[in-house]
Nucleic acid binder design. Sequence first.
DNA 1: CTGATGTTAGTACCAAGTGCTAATAGCGGG
DNA 2: CCCGCTATTAGCACTTGGTACTAACATCAG
Lengths: 194, 194
Amino acid sequence: MKRTKRERQTALKKSIEENPFVTDEELSAEFDVSVQTIRLDRMELAIPELRERIKHVAVKTFEDEVKSLPIDEVIGEIIDIELDEKAISIFDVKAEHVFQRNQIARGHHLFAQANSLAVAVMDEELALTVKSELQFLRPVKAGQRIVAKATVIERLPEKNRASVKVVSTVDQVTVFIGTFEMYRMTEQSEGEVG
Amino acid sequence: MKRTKRERQTALKKSIEENPFVTDEELSAEFDVSVQTIRLDRMELAIPELRERIKHVAVKTFEDEVKSLPIDEVIGEIIDIELDEKAISIFDVKAEHVFQRNQIARGHHLFAQANSLAVAVMDEELALTVKSELQFLRPVKAGQRIVAKATVIERLPEKNRASVKVVSTVDQVTVFIGTFEMYRMTEQSEGEVG
DNA sequence: CTGATGTTAGTACCAAGTGCTAATAGCGGG
DNA sequence: CCCGCTATTAGCACTTGGTACTAACATCAG
């Protein structure tokens, strides 16, 4: 038996946050109070009804769908590409890419943009990164747009290798330089790298 | 005025797929038929009612939430850490981390695990990567578990710098080696790197 | 003309609520 | 001991977006 109203309400809030799909009836059983009490509690806490809660979750997904997709495909948007020569992509740094602490973009996002651009310039999904050297020259903050330019600087076709240099800038200022040694996979060689 | 029933039903299906939040009434207006006809159509097409549809979308998000969250916090799960000394994390490679083409894990996921571990071993959200050298020794495939071990190998406290070496293995076989030159931010120095 | 197919209308019912009124329980103070 | 207050509970009418079912039409083909 929970005692104070306040205690129940904080627990209620937490419970709904953890599982938005719970009905008032289930909650009433959980807290051993009447359904009406749960309704009053929700009202005081300004927690919407089950169906509204679910809707919000669903709408959020729907919006996120576009946002989360890029993380697995090409990171950043390729705006120009010339296979085996060069490519350019842009990437807008948003709140979800930075450390909350200081709003600075996490390194792996810069790397991801550069690396996926290096893969793309080689030839779509058939290239692997073998080695890489990176320099993070300046911190990038949320709201900034990173322009990455990839150039193939060395080709060793007989070894299925090539080097790609990627320079990323924000407002014409270089923030990141990376060189990627790429391995171009052939049908036979799949899975045998290094 | 749509003619055949079949035409309407294919359009209906598409319409609901595009916007699962649409009610039968809205659909009845859209296709200029009665609400009952829409219901019959849904029945024949085995399309659930609005609330069920929304629920499915919401449940999907809920499950994805855990999956998408790590991308922004620590990549991989830290299983051991000794600040300024060493740290170990594991990362399970899933379908969403690999190239569809050949099931090989994309480089930036290996980098992300290693880099975030390097950041973590330094001291929570206060470190930035300045330089890095990577070697992708062997391809990692979906279903494999990557164990990353980070060790602080060099310290230059007066310059707020340190080097971290990360070795990632799958079944005791080294798949990735990375060295990270880290910069430890102080309150005053925020935003001025390199 | 009859029958199959498609469409519409209407009714009863359900879940998970809102919004409202009213009753009751428990306790604290005077 | 009663008064007043808060908290809780109960009950009813109503809402949305349906299901499940029955019945009436419409239309066209054979």
